[in-house]
Design a protein around this nucleic acid. Structure first.
Lengths: 219, 219
DNA sequence: ATCCCGCTCCGCCGCACGGGGGAGACACCG
DNA sequence: CGGTGTCTCCCCCGTGCGGCGGAGCGGGAT
């Protein structure tokens, strides 16, 4: 069963990186580098034209960064190519962003040649393998968690945030007052302000709003 | 750079599956099947003894299923082997469970030989490749959302779940009564029951408990 | 020097809420 | 047949809560 070669596009603004990747990948049977791009914008157009199976996408590039380019490609091409996001540092948030953007994989530049080749091969035929749709769903959940953060959050004063946090901890006004070492009346004032700003009718709705907005993890 | 062979343990209760996997993997240079197990419990002990690099773990097995076996192995061995969970059907929740249990990968039985081999190779040296620690973090978040589902959840009656859902929607008792088309007194009774079973002091704490337990998405 | 804003606190009022206790109807199960 | 569990509803009572209006103090901006 001789499969047709895996067609690859490299997107990286550094010539040396592209050269190195091309050297490694071209030496492999069944892998073919069919195009290169040096900016995110170029990556989008090149991929749209060449319709490769796999794209190795650097995160930091001029004009449009790799994340946005990935987003655009995944959103506009049907079926989208498998995009492997390549970066220098193991920054967790990059990985999340890559997954959210629709990347099929994530690779560090310090990876050795074997790992690179295997990753490309794997990703190229990734219909039923390592982490398919589920990981995307996971990333989407994460996105919902930390993304919008509701408009009212920024309008709360420091003290009001404190109070809301304690409200979300299930404390009564009196308990919050003790924790914050202020009078109960003060807490009442802050609670009233929180209710007004969150549009909540009572403390329960305010707590719900806090959870929905991801207020608790965000701080 | 001749690496030492990747040492593999197969855990599957069906002989044919083990034979097939062994045939495929043993034929590959650099891969060596060093042990087999036919139950989850056996898998744990075999892995503990042989300390393989990779474990191919079936989900459905006697005594202890693959998920629990994976959990136990990951939790007790340092460093844990790379565990690839193998299953027949592409059930999303399985993937989540596998990730949560600490699996490094997820593979379908209908995968072809190439995919299998590549997946094993990849996973074996997966320090810096596709989805490292970040995916675990993602799975942990997911776990917090819907995993344990707190003991009290199962103790709620159907009507109490209804009421709690509406409480978590920010409704007052009177509003809930209208929505459920029952009397306000009835709602009060259910609310009281919910508070007792959740250990909450007031409706706010109950709603918090509901959120923390992932009750809203689950029920 | 003035103004605005955040933090602190006060009193009064009405109400939804939660605690306690009880009760009738129905269904399921041993 | 009685026991058990669920859903339905009732009363009384105390209170935490939220709405309303007001006030003093300090800091930062203009």
């Amino acid at each position: 069963m001789t499969r047709p070669a895996v067609r690859i596009v490299l997107a990286d603004d550094e010539r040396m990186v592209r050269t190195a990747l091309r050297a490694i990948l071209s030496a492999e049977p069944g892998l073919a580098v069919v195009g290169e791009a040096t900016t995110g914008a170029e990556a989008v157009s090149v991929v749209r034209e060449l319709r490769p199976d796999v794209v190795l996408m650097d995160v930091r590039m001029p004009e449009i960064d790799g994340m946005r380019a990935t987003e655009q490609i995944v959103a506009t091409l049907e079926p989208p190519p498998r995009i492997v996001v390549v970066t220098t540092f193991e920054n967790d948030s990059y990985v999340y962003d890559a997954l959210r953007a629709g990347a099929a994989g994530f690779l560090l530049k310090r990876s050795d040649a074997d790992t690179l080749v295997q990753a490309v091969r794997l990703v190229a035929q990734t219909d039923s393998l390592l982490f398919p749709a589920a990981v995307r769903a996971l990333a989407d959940q994460y996105a919902r968690r930390s993304a919008p953060s509701a408009p009212w959050v920024s309008k709360l004063t420091g003290r009001e945030r404190d109070v809301l946090r304690h409200m979300a901890g299930g404390l009564t006004n009196a308990e919050i007052a003790r924790r914050l070492e202020v009078g109960p009346a003060t807490v009442k004032s802050h609670v009233a302000a929180v209710l007004a700003k969150t549009g909540a009718r009572d403390r329960t709705q305010a707590v719900i709003a806090a959870y929905e907005a991801g207020f608790l993890s965000a701080g």
